[in-house]
């Protein structure tokens, strides 16, 4: 069972209960910063007349997991993408590469780590919903199994024609995410990227990286071959032309 969230922006009133509950659940500093930081893992942004929640999308094939040189990011089978601060060396490739601009850094600290939403993993382990979903007063945040939520999202779109744009954000974006979004306005107007490929971004680099053994074997053979042939040629040239002749 893979946990997921369905965010229906048409139901969100921007009350901010999710942000407050998130801070309490994750023992984060309580001041509200208005944007996501290492100390604020989810916020509600107003875009036009729509409130849109910004949080980790918990990708099915996370870009952060693909780029991390020490494997500090990991998608768990239960849904959340988790971060191991004990492994992190602070290269910040995850921050650079995340297509949803999610991981944040503790820029103010001398021994900094990355921080982001963990989908309330301790609550999931106890069989509870995420803190944000459990406090949302309007039902804008639904917690459940990803397949069930995809079905529900499709039903909502079909049930009230014209209420939603006919797209579930996160169904396919960058290989799909565990956070799904519905909206009445095009997602680009909500500050979300709409130029993402449907395949996981990690495939773009793996296509090249998986060739490394081939490059080493073929390159090594080629280089040694060239060495062998040109050495022989130089040897012959020396014998024929006598030593020390530089052209």
């Amino acid at each position: 069972m893979s946990h997921a969230l369905l965010l229906d922006t048409t139901l969100c009133t921007g009350c901010g209960a999710c942000t407050a509950a998130c801070k309490e659940q994750n023992a984060l500093p309580l001041e509200i910063e208005g944007r996501n930081t290492a100390y604020t893992w989810c916020t509600v942004e107003k875009r036009g007349s729509t409130f849109v929640r910004r949080m980790c999308m918990h990708c099915e094939s996370p870009t952060c997991q693909s780029v991390c040189p020490v494997g500090a990011m990991k998608k768990s089978p239960e849904g959340p993408v988790l971060y191991d601060p004990k492994k992190c060396i602070g290269c910040r490739y995850c921050i650079q590469a995340c297509p949803f601009d999610v991981p944040k850094y503790q820029w103010d600290r001398n021994v900094p780590v990355v921080a982001k939403c963990v989908m309330c993993q301790p609550r999931l382990a106890k069989g509870e919903a995420t803190a944000c979903a459990s406090v949302c007063p309007t039902g804008a945040i639904r917690f459940g199994d990803r397949e069930d939520l995809v079905r529900e999202a499709k039903e909502r779109i079909a049930a009230t024609p014209g209420r939603y744009v006919d797209h579930i954000y996160g169904l396919h974006e960058a290989g799909g995410t565990s956070v799904l979004m519905l909206s009445s306005v095009p997602f680009g107007q909500l500050g979300l990227r709409t130029n993402l490929p449907d395949e996981p971004l990690g495939k773009l680099t793996w296509r090249v990286l998986s060739r490394v053994p081939d490059i080493v074997l073929m390159g090594g053979t080629l280089l040694y071959g060239i060495y062998w042939i040109t050495k022989r040629r130089e040897h012959v040239r020396r014998i024929e032309g006598g030593e020390g002749h530089e052209s």
Binding site: Q65, S66, V67, C68, P69, G71, K87, C91, T205
Partner: peptide, 9 residues
């Protein structure tokens, strides 16, 4: 800690 999928690695 290895991650052979990472270019940085």
């Amino acid at each position: 800690y290895w991650n052979e999928h990472s270019v940085m690695f």
